[in-house]
């Protein structure tokens, strides 16, 4: 079976901001996401997780390596993917409804049809009746819901999510995670979910990929999460299997992170 998204030996090297050095953010990353699979990528903050996601989205061209979407090499923007950003991405001059329907408008869909669809999606993310609010009139959690609806209304086959809930408080975050799982389970899109929170990664995913610390980040471990679905993210955290998985992944992660830290330290002292 061809993977929905596959990164093959992807390396991203940036020119350093000062001087003429280079900074390799990610190096030789192989990553394949099966159709309908929910994969989380965890790693220390600033290790190049977002870089990988931008490569999969087509926003960033890798210095070397290939990206294939359903077996076809990716050229330009990945039109089959929806992207949910970590930072505020809504257009502040558009109301919630206008933000949700923006993608339809770009596609040239009729105003009325787009409006009906938009209202429907707002209701699905729990924001019925908030359509004419502007982003600044919504709370952080509500803005994330609008972003979610904005992405899902286009029915992308692949969801790319870059720490989408990291700015939210714990309660809102768990609510959003549950809603995401519920929406996802309806038609099982392929998901790459970036996070630095291991608990979030385990409770949402089918598989967790652990990245090493930067620079030259690469995957250092893959763990299949065999927890039963449907899940409730706040309850599943208490199950013995969850704790077992968490322990295993956390140990591997900690060892590798420490190893990476030692290496960098030796390099700077010698």
């Amino acid at each position: 079976m061809t993977a929905s998204v596959s990164l093959e030996k992807v390396t991203c090297t940036f020119a350093a901001r000062s001087g003429d050095g280079h900074y390799t953010a990610v190096k030789d990353v192989d990553l394949a996401i099966a159709d309908g699979e929910f994969v989380s990528v965890v790693g220390p903050t600033g290790c190049g997780k977002s870089t990988l996601l931008n490569v999969a989205a087509g926003l960033l061209r890798p210095s070397s390596g290939h990206v294939r979407i359903h077996g076809e090499p990716l050229a330009g923007i990945n039109r089959r993917a929806g992207y949910m950003f970590q930072a505020e991405a809504l257009m502040p001059w558009r109301s919630a409804l206008e933000n949700v329907t923006a993608g339809l408008e770009f596609r040239g869909e009729g105003r009325e049809a787009a409006r009906t669809k938009g209202e429907d999606w707002l209701a699905r993310v729990g924001l019925a009746g908030f359509g004419d609010r502007y982003p600044h009139q919504l709370s952080g959690g509500m803005r994330k819901r609008v972003s979610l609806a904005q992405m899902l209304i286009l029915d992308p086959q692949i969801l790319l999510m870059d720490e989408p809930f990291s700015a939210l408080d714990v309660q809102t975050r768990q609510l959003m995670e549950n809603e995401l799982l519920e929406l996802w389970s309806a038609d099982r899109k392929s998901v790459i979910f970036i996070t630095h929170d291991l608990e979030e990664a385990i409770s949402l995913s089918d598989r967790v990929v652990v990245l090493s610390a930067g620079p030259a980040t690469r995957p250092i471990g893959e763990y299949v999460i065999d927890l039963p679905r449907p899940r409730d993210v706040s309850e599943i955290r208490l199950s013995p299997r969850f704790i077992e998985l968490h322990d295993r992944i956390w140990h591997a992660m900690k060892d590798e992170v420490l190893k990476g830290y030692q290496q960098t330290r030796n390099r700077t002292t010698s």
Partner: peptide, 9 residues
């Protein structure tokens, strides 16, 4: 916002 709009097509 620009990247988001780009991703939305």
């Amino acid at each position: 916002v620009l990247n988001n709009a780009t991703m939305l097509g």
